[in-house]
Structure formats: C-alpha cells, structure tokens
C-alpha cells in the first residue's frame, strides 16, 4: 500500500490506513485509496471478504470496527444496498417523491426514471403488490433521478446493482454508469458478474479474511 500521501486534488473519497474488522475477522488492513471524479471502481472478492462492509464504510453507514479514516468531499451520495429502502405501503411515485425531497432532486423526473427501469405502468401501485425484482428497480430508479439531477462530484455506491435485472435493463444501467463517469462522477460498485462496460476501471480485489 502506498504511504499516506496527501489527498488528490479532485478526490471525492479519501481513504487513509483503513482497517475493517467485523465479526472478529480482520477484513481489511491499512488500505490507502483515493477515488476521484471520472473513475469507476469495481470491488470484487469471495463472499464474506468484506465487499459490502467496505461499501457501507465508504457511504459512512458503517463505523464499527473501522480504523484509519474515510473522508468524503462529494456534493451528492447515492447508496443502493441490498435492501430496497422503499416503503411497502407507499407507491413507487410516493417513495421516489420523498427521495427527491430528501436529496433535492427534481420530482418532475420521476416518471422518466420509472420508465427507464420499466415500471412506468406501475407508478401508482402499492409497492407491497410489486415483486421483489420490481421493488429493486424502484430503488434503482433513484440512480436515474440522481443522473438526471446531474450534479458534479456525485458519488455512486452500488451493491450488486445488476442482480435481478433483465438484459436490456443491464445494458441501460451500464450505459448510464459510463456516462456518469464520463461526466465527472465516481461510481463504486460490487458485482459478481463481469461488467458490460468498456471504459477504464480500477479493480479492488479483496482476498483473505474469508
């Protein structure tokens, strides 16, 4: 690991001497990492190697068992985790309207976001009547809302974004990610499948600790 050099100029996330310990296992030790704009980072590794824990630490959700420091300098943070983060008793539109209020996105873009995840017909159905896959896509619609908001220094942290999405959904998502990176955003994701993306990528392979 390179020694702790100062934060790169346009770094969205600066990680210094990061150590992660969960459930008595040392997942990471002394990791230095700078994630700047225009970057795509893929976190790989066997199950239980700490991919999700690292992602949640980057998001600031997980501080337990963390040594070293993680500092974020991004205007917007989007985290799509395993759980859909939507209310069953609200419709996709109501869920996304609240997300827009929370992040300051334009609520007018909800319909186009839902359309891009293939849920335009189900905008006003209670989420409890949607399938698990559809609920994940409501969560994914947040990504398109963030994309439409088009903020600079946006940091996307995506946990297995491609699971339970059909083929052209994957293609659309990959294209959006590529464009977001091209525009100056940073995208960090974990994935088991290989990525249908042909842009430079930094691969973070988590080994031991299994």
């Amino acid at each position: 690991m390179s020694s702790a050099q100062p934060a790169a100029a346009s770094a969205l996330v600066t990680v210094r001497e990061l150590g992660l310990e969960r459930g008595g296992r040392l997942l990471l030790d002394n990791l230095d990492l700078d994630i700047a704009g225009h970057e795509l980072v893929l976190i790989e590794g066997p199950n239980g190697s700490g991919k999700t824990t690292l992602l949640r630490s980057l998001a600031g959700l997980s501080r337990l068992g963390l040594t070293g420091s993680i500092t974020r300098h991004c205007d917007e943070l989007l985290y799509l985790g395993h759980r859909a983060g939507i209310k069953q008793l609200l419709t996709p539109r109501e869920n996304l309207a609240w997300a827009c209020r929370s992040q300051g996105w334009d609520a007018g873009a909800i319909d186009s976001a839902l359309e891009r995840v293939g849920l335009s017909g189900r905008a006003d159905v209670f989420c409890q009547h949607l399938s698990a896959g559809q609920q994940r896509r409501v969560n994914l619609a947040r990504l398109y809302l963030s994309f439409d908001a088009g903020r600079e220094n946006a940091l996307w942290l995506l946990d297995e974004p491609f699971t339970a999405i059909d083929r052209d959904g994957v293609a659309a998502l990959a294209a959006t990610m590529a464009e977001q990176v091209a525009r100056g955003g940073a995208v960090v994701l974990t994935s088991h499948q290989d990525l249908p993306l042909d842009i430079p990528l930094r691969r973070l392979v988590l080994g031991g600790g299994a």
Binding site: L42, G50, D194, L195, P200, R202, L204, V205
Partner: peptide, 18 residues
C-alpha cells in the same frame, strides 16, 4: 493465526472481458 487480509488494486483499461 488470524487470516491476514489482502487487497490488490489493479488498473484495467478495458473492463469487459468479452
């Protein structure tokens, strides 16, 4: 012995293996 964690960072210019 605590399994020593390892992290490898690789720069890959073309992600899609295909």
């Amino acid at each position: 012995p605590r399994a020593a964690p390892s992290v490898r960072i690789e720069e890959v210019n073309n992600a899609s293996g295909s």
